[in-house]
Amino acid sequence: MYKVLIIEDDPMIGDMISMYLGEEGFHVIRMETGQKGLEAVRQFAPDVILLDLMLPDMDGLQLCKQVRITSSVPIMIVSMKNKVVERVGALGAGADDYMSKPFSMHEMSARVHALIRRSHLYHKASEIKGVSGSAVKDGKPEAVDPMQGDMNKISLDLHTRSIIVQGQTVETTYSEFEIMKCFVNHPGRVYSREDLLHTVRGFDSYVTDRAIDVHIANLRKKIEDNPKEPRRIRTVWGVGYKFVY
Rank of each mutant, 00 (worst) to 15 (best):
D57P: 00
N82K: 10
P46C: 01
V88S: 01
Y98K: 00
A95V: 12
G60E: 10
S71F: 10
S71M: 12
L63V: 14
S72I: 15
V78P: 02
R68T: 11
R87P: 04
I75L: 14
L38C: 02
G92P: 04
E39H: 14
L51S: 14
G92T: 01
L63K: 06
D96H: 12
E86T: 00
V48I: 14
G92L: 06
D97L: 00
V41L: 11
I49Y: 11
G94D: 10
L51H: 10
R87T: 07
A40C: 03
M58E: 06
S79V: 13
V41T: 10
V67C: 05
E86M: 13
V88Q: 03
Q62K: 12
R87S: 03
M80Q: 14
Q66M: 09
D52S: 00
L61M: 08
Q43G: 08
K81V: 14
G60V: 06
A90N: 07
F44W: 09
M99K: 07
D52G: 00
S71R: 11
G94Y: 14
L51F: 12
M99W: 01
L55Q: 09
P46K: 10
L91Q: 01
M76D: 01
Q62F: 05
L51P: 06
G34S: 04
L61E: 05
Q62T: 09
L51E: 08
P46T: 08
V88K: 03
I49R: 07
Q62G: 05
